[in-house]
Simulated assay, not measured.
Amino acid sequence: MYLEKGEDLFSGNPRNYLGMGKRKNNINQGIITTVETDNDNFWAYNNGITALVNNYHPNDETNEIIINGITIINGAQTTGAIGAAKTIENDFFIPARFIICNDPKIIEKIINNNNKQNEILPSDLRSNDKQQERLRRDFNKYPALFYSGGRRDDKVVRNKEVFDPYLVAQTLKAYHGDCVLAYNGKKILWDDDKEYNNVFIDQLTVEHIIYVYSLSRAIDEYKIRLKTKGETRTDSEEQQMMFLSKRGSKMLLIYAISETMENIVGSKINDSWQLRFKDCSDFDKLVKKWYDVIEVVLAFSGNLLPALEGGLKNKETAKKTVESVKAIIVAIQVTLKKQLKEFISMLKWK
């Protein structure tokens, strides 16, 4: 019917078939692949269609349902993708609901309610992953902190520091070497199997998440402090404010701090995934302890600026700018070890 009637088949639907031209429509390609290679199970994989019809009645002799008039109000992507399949080897089942209704107000409500489903986010599909289940369980050690692991519900979390799953993945990715993807690939980190598994590794601990996430929060608060100073900002603070106001600056700064951490603590760090605070019970305290480190690295923010021209887009440029800052930090690391003695004493990396 779709091949014959085209978009007229969706006259009562808020959307027509969206095709496969954009990445977000890869689900339509997935439907086509299922139709062509695994359609015996299509009925179990797909939500099917909902259609308004004028009338229908069963024909017992032919074991068919005869339908008069039809508009598909939910299932345009399913219908269009099936119509776009190149080869269909055999007949297969599609879940379907046929609704008869002559009340215009009820019809409007049927159409609206059938097209108001919550968007399926990449994190939804990972929420039952073994790593997310483990991290949710391990976060219970810290009653003042909350991590959903991508699982959405309607519970209101009160009096807790809520760790946003997407920001957790972004900060971890930036800290461990790729600030460009961390900034530009928020959903990719959850959607792509390889990237997801590179972030949520078996060795990832709740304590390391707290360590990196507290740095992210500290950068946010440091920026707010500079902003509130207004006209009283010094020239160096003006330069820091200019840097932090640029797109991608936070992820670049997290990466820069990560790359200079050995020089800051004055010791070899064999496994950066082991970095954590000895005591994670007071999150606000940890955030404030990052201020001194942020101030040190931001003193050389001018060296990092080239990586932010037009937004944080080039991984090689980011790496070069961070290396230039690292070279300066190396030259003053003896002084830094004394200056940041209290912060260093709070860390554990072995």
Score class of each variant (00 low, 15 high):
Y147E: 02
K229T: 08
K130C: 05
S123D: 05
Q203P: 01
P143H: 03
E207W: 03
I209F: 10
L135T: 08
F200T: 04
L181Y: 08
N159R: 13
V168R: 04
I209Q: 03
K194A: 07
V168A: 08
L215H: 01
K223D: 10
S216D: 14
Y196A: 04
P104G: 03
G230E: 07
H176Q: 03
L145K: 01
L172N: 04
R233P: 02
N118I: 15
N112V: 14
I120N: 05
N112S: 14
Y222L: 09
N90H: 15
F200D: 01
C101V: 06
N159A: 15
R134H: 00
Y147Q: 00
G149R: 04
L172H: 03
Y166M: 13
Y183Q: 10
L226W: 00
H176C: 02
Y166E: 10
R134Q: 04
K173Q: 09
H176W: 05
P104C: 00
K227C: 10
I106M: 14
N118A: 15
Q170I: 09
E133C: 13
R97D: 10
L167W: 09
C179H: 01
L181D: 08
A144M: 15
Y196I: 01
H208L: 00
I94W: 03
G185Q: 06
T234S: 15
D193M: 02
D192N: 06
W190C: 05
E231R: 08
Y175M: 13
Y183N: 11
E89Q: 12
N128W: 15
G177I: 07
V206L: 06
T232K: 12
E133S: 12
E207S: 09
K109D: 12
L189W: 01
D129Q: 06
G149C: 07
C179P: 11
Y196N: 04
A218T: 13
Y147P: 04
S216T: 13
P165G: 02
N128E: 14
D129W: 01
N115W: 05
T232F: 15
K109Y: 09
